[in-house]
């Protein structure tokens, strides 16, 4: 296996943008670095000829998810939020331990890795090739359905969390205890 010049550049930028996400003080700048990071990951996918996954990476992560991040940052005007303490400098040993563990896993993977005898032909990673794989009952169909169900549960839960009063009013009798107004006694 060989890593070419442009791959090295992309990987270097990938690490750099990852560092920027963690280290930048302004949250909006960090989110911008995150977009750059996601776009570079999409570039890695394209280099691996997984074009469909690359586009999904851009649409879902660089597009939708970071927009939501930015939305929350701007809505709460939390761009320069002072969190009180910077956790990273206080935890050098934990950080070093984590980095060592990650490096160990990576080295182990590199040593144990053997190229597949018959490299899978994914046809450019197009949906025509990925679809039968994902929706094959013997392979990933169950996992896919389980993930979909989990997301549905999460969505319903989010709605319930946001508007408990309206849900209660719609599902319970009007005389439910939670609907009664509490009388506040004033004075002696």
């Amino acid at each position: 296996m060989s890593v070419g010049f442009w791959e090295m550049v992309v990987l270097f930028l990938l690490v750099l943008s990852g560092l920027a996400v963690v280290r930048l003080q302004n949250a909006v700048h960090a989110a911008l670095a995150l977009i750059a990071n996601f776009l570079l990951v999409a570039g890695v996918y394209v280099a691996l000829e997984a074009r469909f996954v690359a586009m999904i990476q851009i649409i879902v992560y660089a597009g939708a998810i970071v927009v939501l991040f930015l939305f929350v940052i701007m809505l709460l005007s939390a761009a320069n939020a002072n969190v009180g303490l910077d956790l990273l400098p206080r935890l050098p040993w934990a950080a070093a331990l984590g980095a060592l563990g990650l490096a160990g896993v990576l080295v182990y993977g590199l040593i144990r890795y053997q190229p597949a005898a018959n490299p899978p032909a994914l046809g450019g990673g197009l949906p025509q090739a990925l679809g039968p794989l994902l929706y094959d009952p013997e392979k990933w169909l169950f996992a896919l359905l389980a993930v979909g169900f989990l997301l549905l549960v999460a969505t319903v839960a989010a709605v319930v969390l946001v508007e408990p009063e309206r849900i209660l009013a719609a599902t319970t009798h009007p005389a439910h205890p939670s609907q009664k107004e509490e009388k506040v006694e004033v004075g002696p």
Binding site: V3, L11, V44, A47, L48, L110, G123, L126
Partner: peptide
């Protein structure tokens, strides 16, 4: 097009998808 081997780990990710069906690319 040349198949680029980026890193072993990434190639392993590709192999994770299992033996895929050989599908002809669109015309």
């Amino acid at each position: 097009m040349k198949r680029l081997n980026l890193t072993a780990a990434a190639a392993g990710t590709l192999a994770l998808f299992g033996p895929a069906l050989a599908v002809e690319t669109p015309s």
